[in-house]
Simulated assay, not measured.
Amino acid sequence: MSDPLHILGAGSLGLLLAARCTLAGAPCQLILRTREAVCAWRQRDNLLLLEQQGQSTPLKVAGELADESAQPIRLLVVATKAWAVADALDSVLHRLTPDSQILLLQNGLGSQQAVSRRLPDHRVLYASVTDGAWLRSPNQVVWAGSGQTLIGDPAAGPAPDWLQRLTRAGIDWRWESDILPVLWLKLAVNCAINPLSALHDCPNGEVPERAGAIFEPLLAELHALLSSEGVSLSLAELRERILAVIRATASNSSSMRQDVLAGRRTEIDFILGHAWRSARQAGLSTPVLDALYLQLQNHLTERGLPRN
């Protein structure tokens, strides 16, 4: 029997992956963060509800604490928020083997490189996921929109065979020989949408209008940042990429806006914060980005949320 896919994190992406693997008959194991969460999961009889277009499909997915089993973890998907990756990995380090492989699904940048530095002897893969998903309840995930998963190895290795189980699960994925430019482009898109949607408390489709005069200068600064990181595309191409995402997700609420409204810690440090620090290191002048970063930090403080 093939090694199960251990999914660390029961947020929207983690539950969506668990649901799709279970539907396809691919073995997977959900790792939950607290004993209370595990007890609640089991009280619901390990039932995961996948909702799509108003229809719910009940699925049985086993949940456990990281230290509840001695079973080695050879295939680990980390589906937590970016700020939670370090603590989440701490909980499973004792179960990793020398041949364990890790797939990271985080937004933004910074958390992925930290994992690679921490586990230099393990194969660590990075991914960009564009599926739309949100939680209606702790065990019900709404699949709001189909997207694509781009996966790559920052060490430039070939695609591992086990990723074919994603194909069997109906996941639209593609191997990227150079994954960092993909993640930088996604970071720029997130920087243009998430902070503004959170500040103005609006769906994605309203971002350009709500942003007003700062929108175009912000795109120009993000383009300069991408160029400094070796991402080759024109400002017009970047603008169209960002506007295409806004059009495709016009009625959606960005993850950062969802976090602010729910009183949860945001991923500001791995989205806008990483862009700001990278611009400083590259010696770029980014007054619009700087002001937006400070404004968002102040907004989070006013809401009683962490500034990072």
Rank of each mutant, 00 (worst) to 15 (best):
P4V: 13
L5W: 15
L8K: 03
L8V: 12
G9P: 13
G11F: 05
S12T: 13
S12W: 06
L17K: 04
A18K: 02
A19S: 14
R20Y: 00
C21Y: 09
T22Q: 08
P27G: 15
C28N: 08
L30Y: 04
I31N: 05
L32T: 04
L32D: 06
R33F: 12
T34E: 12
V38T: 07
C39W: 07
Q43T: 07
L48P: 04
L49S: 04
E51L: 12
E51R: 14
E51Y: 01
E51Q: 15
Q55G: 00
V61G: 07
L65W: 06
A70E: 14
I73V: 15
L76P: 00
A79R: 05
S91C: 12
S91F: 06
S91D: 11
T97H: 04
P98I: 10
P98Q: 14
Q101L: 13
I102A: 10
Q113E: 15
Q113D: 15
A114F: 02
R118A: 02
D121Q: 08
Y126R: 09
D131C: 01
R136G: 02
W143G: 06
T149C: 11
G152K: 10
D153R: 05
P154K: 14
A156S: 12
A159Q: 14
D161L: 13
D161C: 08
R165G: 06
L166I: 02
R168T: 11
G170S: 05
R174C: 08
L187W: 04
V189M: 09
N190D: 07
N190T: 06
C191G: 03
P195K: 14
A198M: 07
A198I: 05
L199T: 11
L199F: 04
H200I: 04
C202M: 03
P203D: 11
G205K: 13
R210G: 02
R210A: 10
A220M: 06
L222W: 06
H223D: 10
L226G: 05
S228W: 01
S232A: 15
L235R: 14
E240Y: 01
I242H: 02
L243S: 01
L243I: 02
A244I: 09
V245H: 00
R247E: 08
A250C: 02
S254C: 07
S255V: 04
Q258W: 03
Q258L: 09
T266E: 00
T266L: 07
F270D: 03
F270S: 03
I271M: 13
G273N: 14
W276K: 01
R280T: 10
R280V: 09
L284W: 14
T286K: 03
L289S: 00
D290V: 08
Y293N: 09
H299L: 00
R303L: 07
R303W: 05
R303Y: 06
R303C: 01
P306L: 06
R307L: 15
